[in-house]
Each structure stands twice: as structure tokens, then as C-alpha cells.
Design a protein around this nucleic acid. Structure first.
Lengths: 116, 116
DNA sequence: TCTCTGATTCGACGGATGTCGAGACAGGTA
DNA sequence: TACCTGTCTCGACATCCGTCGAATCAGAGA
């Protein structure tokens, strides 16, 4: 869990969501959603996102995420932070461990933009 | 139009497409699709993609794209090349102008991955 | 309180990225 | 042929990004 709530994007606040293919995405919408796509634009983060979103109970522990990659703890922590700051996931510390869960609506909004 | 066909990703060749939220995305799939998300992870490219995909006739001329941004020609050309190499668009020169069109199936595949 | 473990932050490094100006290339047109 | 216009390539620059080791912080338990 971050020491203080990090500057987090609220994707649902984006001027929203007509499909990309329907009309030109306004500048503000592009600026609001591009960071989320950027966050998914790394293979490790794409897998992290998938592991979190598909985890049973809807949440995944960092202690399960880290050993799934050939990367150090700090690096995984960095990628999780990027996902957090992009508004894609939320983190919660419970006792010793930190749990991540997908932010409801975030993926849906991105999917809606790409939908035809 | 690129001088020679650039190394272009074939998104449809990616081990494909169960939603992110359903099961963990395999490493190869993540490696194949992350570049496409990365390409959309820039506000300018997101708008370019939208302008191309939503253009009437399904294609847009560079000569219409460039003046829509406060950027130089080379910079727009660079962004279009990134979209091309990510497998999201195709380019074709017809006479003086170069036309870009959305690559069918590319956006659909990304949307499918994000779908819940 | 002290110690141990899990997770984050910090600082550093090499490599990638966005932007531009200058120059090259492709097609029209005279 | 020569010239003009539209587009791309090249080289340079500052900035950002992915990764690591070391240090720090947060809880749990002795």
C-alpha cells in the first residue's frame, strides 16, 4: 500500500466513451485515457493486470504476484504503482500482506472506447 | 508510405484473446499485445487512431491529420509509424497523398482482451 | 522492545521515447 | 527537364522508463 494516497487517475471522470471508431476522441478524453493504455503497454504490467483481475476473490496478494516473474520485488512494486496511478487497480494492506484488486469500471471504459 | 514494408506486428497471430479478467494472459500473448496498447498510450496517437478509424470511407489522409495537431510533420509521421508498426493501421500512397486506414481486427482483438 | 518478513521508496544506470530542423524522396505539373 | 508540394528519414536533444541494489517502513510475534 502506498504511504499516502498517490495521485490517482479517476477514469470514470473522463469525458466519456463513445467508441474510437465512431467519432474523433476529444483531446481531453485522449489525455485522460492514454495513461491507462500506456500502463497496459508493458508485457509485465499486462500480465499483472490479468493476474489481479482474474484472481479468485477478485484480489491478488503481492506475495503471489512477485514470484510469478523473473524480476525483483522493487521492480514489481514499481509496475504495480504504475497500474495504481493509472487508475486500473487499488491496493489495500491487510496485516502483513498487500492485496491488489481491479478497479471496477476502468477496464470496461477502455473496452468501450475500443469497441466497434 | 514507408519506403519498404516496415516490421509490422500481426496482432491476429497472437495466441488469442480470452478476456484479461477470465484467466491469466500467457507471456507470449502479453508480449504480442502490449506493443499495441503502448502505441495507444500516447494522447496524440490515440487521437490519430480515432481520426483514422472514424474517418468517412474508413481512411484518412496525412494532409488532414497533420494540421489537426500543434506538431510538426515529422512528429506526426513518427506517431503514424508507431501505429503502423504496432499493427493498428495500414498506409497506402495514392498519387501525392498517403492514406491511412485502421487494420481490421486489431482494435477488436484489444477490445476482446479487455472485455469482461 | 527487539527481530523477522513483506512491501515500498530511493538513487542510479542504460536504453527507449517525443520532439524538432534539415535534408531526401515521390509524384504532379509546367 | 525543372520545379513545387506532400511525406518520410535522419540526426540530435532532453526527457522518460524499466531495472536493480540498498535503505526504509509496516506489522506480527517472541
Amino acid at each position: 500500500m502506498p504511504k499516502q494516497a498517490p495521485p490517482r487517475l479517476d477514469l470514470t471522470a473522463a469525458p466519456c466513451c463513445a467508441p474510437l471508431t465512431q467519432r474523433r476522441v476529444p483531446t481531453e478524453t485522449a489525455a485522460a485515457l492514454a495513461p491507462a493504455f500506456k500502463a497496459l503497454g508493458d508485457p509485465v504490467r499486462l500480465q499483472l493486470m490479468s493476474m489481479i483481475a482474474s484472481a479468485e476473490g477478485g484480489e491478488a496478494c503481492v506475495c503471489d504476484l512477485t514470484p510469478a516473474f523473473d524480476l525483483t520485488g522493487p521492480t514489481i512494486s514499481h509496475h504495480l504503482r504504475v497500474l495504481r496511478e493509472a487508475g486500473l487497480v487499488d491496493a489495500e494492506r491487510r496485516g502483513t500482506w498487500v492485496w491488489y484488486r481491479a478497479r471496477p469500471g476502468a477496464l470496461r471504459q477502455l473496452a468501450a472506447l475500443l469497441a466497434s
